[in-house]
Computed example of a mutant assay.
Amino acid sequence: MQGFYQRADAIIGLANSQLGEDAHSGQVGASLLYAAARYSASVASIGFVKGDDFAKEKDDIVEFYVKQYRQMLSDNLTDYAQNFDQYININKQS
């Protein structure tokens, strides 16, 4: 599980490095969401031989990823709310 969080933190670090005069957090967040969707589509396609077969599974694939994202987002929003003052101070120090 440690590797899971290390990879996530590395991706967050990369996203944070994109912040600046040319991109605010909303723009970087949108790019990150797009990248996650594009990567997930690639991962989901593994094992399929035909595009038609892959397309038939689209709704189930979307449902799976949306369910996972919803749970992860909910968990992180709860964590952020419970640790709000600490996280705000971390963000101000950066």
Rank of each mutant, 00 (worst) to 15 (best):
N76H: 11
D75N: 13
K56S: 08
I46W: 08
F48S: 05
A8Y: 07
F4D: 09
N89S: 15
S42N: 05
E21T: 14
G3W: 07
T78Y: 07
D52Y: 10
Q71V: 11
S25T: 08
S42V: 08
K56H: 06
Q6V: 02
Q71H: 14
G47C: 04
G26T: 01
F48L: 06
D53G: 05
V66A: 03
F48A: 01
F4M: 12
Q68W: 06
L32K: 00
I46A: 12
G3R: 05
I88S: 12
D53F: 06
K92N: 14
S31A: 06
S40F: 06
S94Y: 15
G20T: 11
A41D: 02
N91E: 11
K58P: 04
N16D: 08
K56I: 03
V66F: 02
A81W: 12
A36Q: 03
Q6D: 03
R70A: 13
Y34E: 12
L32R: 00
F54S: 00
V66Q: 06
Y39C: 06
A55N: 11
L14D: 15
A81V: 14
A8P: 03
A8K: 04
Y69Q: 03
Q27E: 06
R7H: 04
S94G: 14
N76P: 00
S40L: 13
Y80L: 13
V62C: 07
Y69L: 11
L77A: 08
N76W: 04
A81E: 15
V62D: 10
Q2K: 13
Y5A: 07
R70L: 02
F84K: 10
A10G: 09
E57H: 08
